[in-house]
Amino acid sequence: MKLHLVETAMQGPRVKTFRFQPVEGSGPLPAYSPGSALRIHLPVGEKGLWNSYSLTSNPWVDDAYSIAVRREDESSSKGGSIYLHDRAKPGDVFEVEPPVNRFALSRLAAKHVLIAGGIGITPFLSYLPVIAGRGQSVEVHYSYRGGDNSAFTDWLYHFVNRYCRVNVYDTTVNHRMNLSLILGLQSAGAHVYVCGPASLIEAVRQTARDLGWPASQVHYEHFSQADERPRRPFAVMLQNSGREVQVSDSESLLEALEREGVPVTHSCRIGGCGSCEIAVSAGQVEHRDHCLSEEDRKAGCSMIACVSRAMNGQLVLKL
């Protein structure tokens, strides 16, 4: 769908907010849940760029989509945030995909502990009003590198009351979170959410594991969505018939087997449902599915034919 950029505002020296509304005549924007993200197409480079940003507004009170973007350094960026900061202006039209949520708020948590590193604060901007509206307890722990990166602290302080605590940490003066203490002090039934650099996410997950937190109460935002590994050609040997099937770089194993008339039960074709699981008797699998468990993968005895491939050029299948 197409959206109009209607307003921008600086939130400190490095973070800018952008507010979008539907173009004339296209009806109201689809609502979304706290933690949702918006994929937006930016005219950068030859093909353009799809970037994903957390929505920071509240769909119950707002008829617009808002995002907050940190201007990345030229050296560490593909140019998306720089385009938004330097070139995008009110009136511009952008192509976006409907919001998706991979970082949802648990509705019945006894308490929410929100841990943010830098611009990782953005999903929590949509969490906080909802948590406050439900009258649930919340703690915010927000660390940043120096005052230039401390966007939204004033906004956060507005929520402080007997049910909401906000702690900020400036790592440039060596003020750091004590994760063992933060997580160790929580009662059973609390949920922790972490968004920020991979090192912070890993530290929170590790600390929670060490303290015996149930995995279902530890939430983290995945940053990399798309699988950017190259699709390489490989060969499979079908052990029951002795046939060999070549899988080119432009097709999946499932497609190659269908082409050769080898029937495989299948359903979703996006690596999600597990219908096209095939037993593997030799060779290392490059797993790209979302349905096999860690144990399944370690055992190495099966693969999901619609997405997964061979690590080293060939596999032997029990087909």
């Binding site: 689809p30 409907p98 998706v100």
Partner: peptide
């Protein structure tokens, strides 16, 4: 057969614009 565990994981990945 592990059907429900996988079905549930699949359902939890459904996003608003794309029902199954």
């Amino acid at each position: 057969a592990g059907v429900f565990k996988r079905a549930k994981q699949f359902l939890m990945r459904i996003q608003p614009a794309e029902p199954w």
